[in-house]
Amino acid sequence: MCPQEKKKKEKENKRNNILRAARKLFFDRGFKSVTVDSIAAKAGVSKGSIYLYFDSKEEIYAQVLVTDNIEHNKEIRNFADKEAPAAELLMAFCQTYVDYFLHDNELFRILMTFMLQTEQMNLTQEQNAELIRTTNENIKVISGILQKGIDSGDFLPAIDIRQTQNAIWGLLNGIISLFLFMGNPAKRADRIHTMVKESLDVFIRGLKK
């Protein structure tokens, strides 16, 4: 590795280290209680070093969530293209969505903070738009599955896709929010998956009537 490549790699590693430290703090303390000083201390770097990579706490927060959203989207983006009935795809997508956040509850809490407290974060218009864009990729997958169900005749043609996709996404996040951080951890996954399946069974029956 040449000196320039080595230096570039070191900068990338330091930037990622800052993001990992910030991610943990945002999960443990919430957005408001985290400061650039606390991120620097957690990452083991000086406050000045933080500003070599990011302009503000808000930018760090946005980058944490955008980076993780992109990784999540890679796992789910082709769901609607799979060869299976739409009802099965919808159920499989929702179970995959749940599994992702069961294995990464830090990201779920950070995502919900953004969804519920956006106006309090003082994000720039560009940061907010990028977060919404990457978050909405999840909803687009649901939309694609619903459209596939309509096209195949599995779902009613009169379905309002926008309202239905938002209702399903809200259902998933609501169930995860209720149980992800409470109750017996050993039973948490089964409880969430069971409730999601039972709720979706009712939802899908309505889509088919």
Score class of each variant (00 low, 15 high):
L65A: 11
L146Y: 06
G170F: 04
F181I: 00
L172F: 02
N17G: 15
K8R: 14
G30Q: 05
Q163P: 02
Q95N: 12
P85G: 03
N166V: 13
K47S: 11
D81K: 13
L116D: 13
V64R: 09
Q127E: 15
D154F: 01
A43R: 06
T164A: 12
I159M: 10
N17M: 14
A43Q: 05
P85D: 02
N16R: 15
M121K: 11
Q120C: 00
K32W: 07
K11H: 13
I175Y: 05
Q95Y: 07
T118I: 09
K82G: 01
D28Q: 15
V141L: 04
L52S: 06
L131H: 05
L178P: 00
L171H: 04
E12V: 06
I50K: 00
D68I: 10
D154M: 06
R133T: 11
E198N: 11
I168S: 04
K14I: 12
D99G: 06
D68S: 12
D151F: 09
V196N: 01
Y53F: 14
G174C: 01
I132H: 00
F181N: 14
M121G: 03
K148Q: 03
H193D: 00
V202I: 14
Q147F: 01
N166Q: 14
S199N: 15
F26S: 02
N122H: 14
D190N: 09
N17K: 13
E75K: 15
P185V: 05
Q95F: 07
Y51C: 07
V45N: 03
